[in-house]
């Protein structure tokens, strides 16, 4: 993966987030403040733009760091900041590299997920974006030897299963926590974002 691939992959995520913005807003409005769709589409739009503007730099880490900061500036909501941490975690792993293989990409994504866990003091099972991202990145890592197509397919499958599992859980973080038991039976909007990321990556790889 080089700079061009990375930028295109993030652009694909952006396009899907823009397309699904209304759906995300609707999901979020049930227990949150309804800004999920806007913040994800604005955040990924800003990140894509910032990456395109990094003309002279080929370092994947530096490009991702630029993207993380642009995301944070454009979408300072909670999930916006959480996405910035994910991108920042990836940036730290890929610093100094202009090209990376599938395993390095998987490791960087794992590092991003751990950065979210550390900074947001959250873990899988709390009915958050981690419920889809966490199984997704580990499934990606576990399947790298089968090639990128299968690896990303497995990652998407694991993320979707993770999303399903949020139905049976109570929300613990942020505004959703006030609703407690009432949140059982509903999927988590943040976890949907995690699935959309893997869906977009799958689309990008199939292109």
């Amino acid at each position: 993966m080089n700079k061009l691939h990375l930028t295109e992959a993030v652009r694909t995520i952006k396009e899907l987030m823009v397309e699904k913005a209304d759906y995300l807003a609707e999901l979020d409005a049930r227990f949150g403040d309804g800004d999920l769709g806007i913040s994800m589409s604005q955040g990924f739009t800003a990140a894509t733009k910032a990456m395109e503007e990094e003309k002279d730099n080929q370092d994947l880490g530096i490009i991702l760091r630029t993207a993380a900061n642009a995301f944070n500036e454009a979408a300072p909501s909670t999930l916006g900041t959480i996405m910035s941490f994910m991108i920042m975690g990836m940036a730290k792993n890929l610093k100094g590299k202009t090209n990376s293989g599938l395993e390095e990409v998987a490791d960087a994504m794992i590092n991003g997920v751990h950065m979210i866990m550390e900074k947001a003091k959250s873990k899988p099972g709390d009915k958050t974006i981690l419920d889809s991202l966490y199984p997704g990145v580990y499934a990606l890592k576990a399947n790298i030897e089968k090639g990128k197509k299968i690896a990303f397919k497995e990652a998407l499958k694991a993320a979707e299963e993770g999303l399903e599992s949020t139905k049976n859980r109570k929300g613990k973080h942020g505004r959703i926590a006030y609703y407690g038991e009432k949140t059982i039976g509903e999927i988590d909007g943040g976890a949907v974002v995690g699935v959309l990321i893997f869906k977009a990556l799958m689309q990008y790889i199939e292109k």
């Binding site: 944070n72 900041t81 940036a91 730290k92 610093k95």
Partner: peptide, 8 residues
């Protein structure tokens, strides 16, 4: 976020 940036 700033601390991560500084560490970078």
């Amino acid at each position: 976020m700033a601390v991560e940036n500084a560490e970078f």
